[in-house]
Computed example of a mutant assay.
Amino acid sequence: MDTKGGVLRPVYGVCEENAAFFSSSPKGAAGGAVRQLVDAMTTIQEHARSLEPVVSGFAAIYHHFDFDPHIPANGYRSLVKLVRCCLLHIVHKGRYISTSRRSIFFRVAHNASEMEAYSNALCQLRALLYLAQRLLHDNSHGNLFFQEESGLSQSFMREYASMHKGCFYGRCLGFQFTPAIRPYLQTMAIGLVAFSENYRKHQSGIGVAASSLFTSGKYAIDPELRGSEYERITQNLDVHFWKSFWNITETEILAVRLRRR
């Protein structure tokens, strides 16, 4: 991946240009949102500068871990691709801000939240890359999986548990996929967190599903709340919750309606 010329240069460009514009513009009533936007742009540049040598290092060696010469695929490639997808979204959003910021319909607060969300996602991807770099260093040469335990898996899980993963389920949900699939992922995430709020309040799964319809709205309009709740669910709720959620369509009432269709 040509990060320096292909992706990182536009990232630096749009962030510097937008940060300079909003830093020199009158703050007015949106002063807090303007500062948030400038801070997000500045933080993105800092993350990008730190990521550049790490990504370049992985790009130089990840072909050694491919499944075979005809199937260029492994976890290190996937991580680098995730970083690239995130950077491309930042460039796209930054260019939109550049072309729309003088419009009377431009919403500073919304765009500041968008850029801050991708800044947080880039921060967590940076942490993942550093963790992958450590695994690469501790493994024997050429091995994708470590052969000697020596506490590495426990350390890996501790590091992973300390990460803030909610940013990947809020505004940035599905950024690594094609845009056509993101609305479905968003609908599923909203349904999941709404279902979890009503879990254990009703005896039947259909009762939880019905109540979830009334509570799903707040998760649709507040991506940060949705992301934090999704992270809490994945870390704390047991397998019975997941069985209840995925078996909603198998409840008696819904099953009868689906068969009639």
Rank of each mutant, 00 (worst) to 15 (best):
A127C: 12
V38W: 04
S119G: 15
R102S: 12
E229D: 09
S23G: 10
L136Y: 14
L136P: 00
S140M: 15
G31E: 07
E17Q: 15
A161Y: 03
N18Q: 07
G166K: 03
C15W: 03
H202S: 08
V80E: 00
A255D: 11
S56H: 05
Y118E: 02
Y169I: 05
N198V: 04
W246L: 15
Q124S: 13
F22Y: 08
G217K: 05
M188H: 06
A48F: 07
Q154C: 07
F67S: 05
K81R: 14
K4Q: 06
L37Q: 00
H70P: 00
C123D: 10
E231Y: 06
R257I: 14
V14W: 01
Y219F: 15
A48C: 13
H202Q: 10
P72R: 13
R171W: 04
G13A: 12
L173D: 01
V239D: 09
Y62H: 14
I44M: 02
R134A: 10
S204D: 03
T249W: 14
D66Q: 07
P183A: 08
N247D: 12
V38S: 02
N143S: 11
S113P: 00
L152C: 01
G5W: 06
A60K: 14
N139D: 10
A220L: 10
R101K: 15
T249C: 15
E17W: 11
S50H: 11
Q154K: 13
L37R: 00
R84E: 10
L173T: 01
Y118K: 04
R134N: 07
T42G: 03
P223N: 06
E148F: 13
W242M: 05
G57E: 09
Y12T: 05
S23P: 01
E231Q: 13
I90Y: 00
